[in-house]
Design a protein around this nucleic acid. Structure first.
Lengths: 146, 146
DNA sequence: CTATTGTGTCAATATGGTTGACCTGGATAA
DNA sequence: TTATCCAGGTCAACCATATTGACACAATAG
């Protein structure tokens, strides 16, 4: 890790910007290290994650969530389907769309991947306290909206 | 933006993970868009940022902060020096080391770049309240430490 | 003198993304 | 029906960003 002065809220929010940067870097590194062992990248993780969170999401929906081109999505998604981690069936009303779901294998890997991040977050929440956790979520919610 | 359910703290912290992901993505996008107009990338921003925050940092120090290889740092750093945004002078005790500093032009660009992120953060803090801001910082501090 | 360290550079390579063009097949409006 | 649109898939060219390895040079430390 890196030496970081404690908050001491100043006007320019420089300290907070650094907190955000280093916190997110450490947060993603946890999963990345597990991913690397399996020859997978962040995209695979995000795909697994979002399909897990939004079962029956379409390819188009995934594209919007991930904010990448369909060409960038296609290869890793196909790979996950070939690995038997993601399944698809044609949509009921519109048979063009694919409804994507995790297989039981896929759910297992997704859980393992997310677990590292969950533990990391959980530990920070526990140390900072429930009130701080609520504040964190409130600010994050505003950032997402804004 | 993307539709996100409100916190409703569950056990698995999935909602919080998404908040983190989308919040950080939106956070960095602000600066990225400005950077793109000048043909610069995130690395340039980080270099400018950290030199601004830690004047007289060495190349080695920068490498540790950014966690990249020196080859990855070299090109953008040289570019910034050629653009007159970053200056260097030999260290006083050890003349091998470069003490990196922003020029007045560099400070101007850095401020402009960081301003977008600052405004974004500030707005979220204002909407969420001072107590939430303290909580956010406390959790982020724990994440950085952890 | 020798070894180590800070910096810079060349080369080869990997990864991950982009845009553009084109295709299939299913849905839908004229 | 025909024309058009849309979801999805794929090929190609390209570009940005990163890596590791090897090497060079200058300066400091022993």
């Amino acid at each position: 890790m890196v030496d970081l002065d404690n908050p001491a809220p100043t006007d320019d929010l420089h300290a907070e910007i650094e907190q955000f940067y280093f916190a997110y870097r450490g947060f993603t590194d946890r999963a990345d290290r597990i991913l690397d062992k399996r020859g997978l990248g962040r995209v695979h993780h995000r795909i697994l994650y979002f399909i897990g969170r939004r079962p029956d999401v379409s390819v188009r929906g995934l594209l919007d969530l991930l904010a990448v081109s369909k060409q960038a999505l296609n290869a890793p998604l196909r790979q996950l389907m070939e690995m038997g981690l993601v399944g698809a069936e044609a949509g009921a009303q519109d048979r063009r769309v694919k409804n994507l779901r995790l297989t039981s294998q896929g759910r297992k890997l997704e859980a393992e991947l997310t677990e590292a991040q969950t533990r990391h977050l959980r530990a920070a929440f526990d140390r900072a306290g429930a009130e701080a956790q609520r504040g964190w979520s409130a600010v994050m919610g505003e950032l997402v909206k804004g």
